[in-house]
Design a protein around this nucleic acid. Sequence first.
DNA 1: CTGAAAGCGCTTACAG
DNA 2: CTGAAAGCGCTTACAG
Lengths: 333, 333
Amino acid sequence: MVTQEKMAKILGITRTTVARALNGSENIRPETKEKVIALAKEMGYIKNYLGSSLALRSKKVVYAFVAKSRSQRYTDEINRGLKAAQKELKEYNFKIEIIETDINNPWEQLETLEKVLKTKDLDGVIITPLDEKRVLEVIAPYMDKVKVVSIGKKITDSIFYVEANYYRAGEISGGIMENILGENEKLLVIDGGDDNLSSKLYLDGFFTRVNTKNKNIIGPIYIENLSDNLEKISDYLTDDVKGFYCNRYPAEVIDYIQKEDRKLKIVTNGFNNKIKEFIKDEIITATVIEEIFEQGYIAGKHIFDLIYKSLQEKPHNYVVKIRIVFKENIDNF
Amino acid sequence: MVTQEKMAKILGITRTTVARALNGSENIRPETKEKVIALAKEMGYIKNYLGSSLALRSKKVVYAFVAKSRSQRYTDEINRGLKAAQKELKEYNFKIEIIETDINNPWEQLETLEKVLKTKDLDGVIITPLDEKRVLEVIAPYMDKVKVVSIGKKITDSIFYVEANYYRAGEISGGIMENILGENEKLLVIDGGDDNLSSKLYLDGFFTRVNTKNKNIIGPIYIENLSDNLEKISDYLTDDVKGFYCNRYPAEVIDYIQKEDRKLKIVTNGFNNKIKEFIKDEIITATVIEEIFEQGYIAGKHIFDLIYKSLQEKPHNYVVKIRIVFKENIDNF
DNA sequence: CTGAAAGCGCTTACAG
DNA sequence: CTGAAAGCGCTTACAG
């Protein structure tokens, strides 16, 4: 096992100096630092983070900037994942502070981010970037000190990000719809627009999938401000429509069409308590969702690795799992 | 934070003695030991396993007894999970040795287990018990030294086990079948018998689910030695049958009925490469499976906790997740 | 049966 | 800019 001690002996310096080189301390001659880092690479040194954390005098702190979405569940699940990671790693003096900002207000996020970077002593940032380019601008000057992980969107190639494949989730719900819909049964597809996160991709995936075979599709019908214009759906809900899909506000929309007392085959993307009830009541057949909890959890675990194990591997992304929910397995959600 | 040092001061003894009490050493007066343990409980002492592992001179070793099933995938996935846990924890001087024995030979497992317990220096046992009662008999004398976790079956209330809900998996596939089958379409259910693990529960769950509504079910038809008597299925495969389910040997069975060139709606439980191909080719609509990988992984992580964090919490069980696989998400498996 | 001491790999305040 | 030293919480060989 390569230790700092061993490398120190080889280089004829003290453990202290080796540690300083590895930890990005200021108080070290550049040449010395380079020598140490070169040797560490050559010998494949990996920092023993048990030793590190035990010796640590102060906590390592990560600030997580979570976009507060209209869907309370999204925020809750991300936070739950972050907290699970923190709990698992609390013995290492590792702390995640969660800061929520409005998903519809990229400026609020940028301002908060900048303020935190300026005023706080922090080791990492986890962020659901609302405006990737500006986030990068704000964060760039700090990136030698502060590790970064993004959730949902890529900031740049060199930053690890946790990805959710919304398009794929749409395809899967499309596949299920195709299977439960009888031949030649008519399918109505409503487009509630883009929420800058998932809804557009849901629709694209869904429609691409069902459109390959089914020649009986009405739509996608775009309805502006859908949640305020639910009654417009009725125009398209002719008697021969048997299947129904809507990429946005599914709970509200289905609540509305329920009033028409129609037996429709419905598949959705996304999840909340209302959808859960609809599935239990067999009004929705199935929904397809991303493991949101996992996004927070993976982000937390990964930034820990970045902070505690210097000489990081090359960054990559992690795609969270997709889950299919029918009535029979709904109790797990 | 409660440390051994603090407790030692309170009791007027040394850290060394406290450590001995906590680690189940022999060389300690019973009264001293009790005193220490009582205080530890009272103060809510939790061992800092970073310190422990760093100080550890020798590896902690766990032997995992994996039942080698006819389905290579089952064994592979359990092993992959165990190895993932080990890799994640290798910095702690933690090692899992995997021993495979034949699922059809409970005696081989018992003999191997006994031999390992007698001759090896080990800290834990993970086991898929084939004969729970005898496993308990063999292992009981060692249980103060050796931590135990079981996979798949419960050994006794006081031993943590990783559970797979096969019945539920059957219910889910039943639910899917019901949704994809048109009204009054006939469903044929074949019972391939019990494999002492999952197949009976799959069938029970599936049948209970479909039987609530569908009045057009043939079966379950029990066929002895199904894999050698595939042709018997043909007798029941009348022209009006539109749906098909079989709890055991699904790949072989579907391979066989494929020859009849019939378009059937098929849902399965379980997974292997053949089933994967069938789903890709739209011969099987969906399959429902347990996270087998997760079983090994959770077992490995949990026994680590038992070994490294003495004063364990009360044992309980963990139910692994169930996954639904359609064509659109098959690439994740 | 108990204690004093060394050591695991690391960080960091202190001194120079 | 560098080093000697203390210390994180624990285990364990050694001595008594």
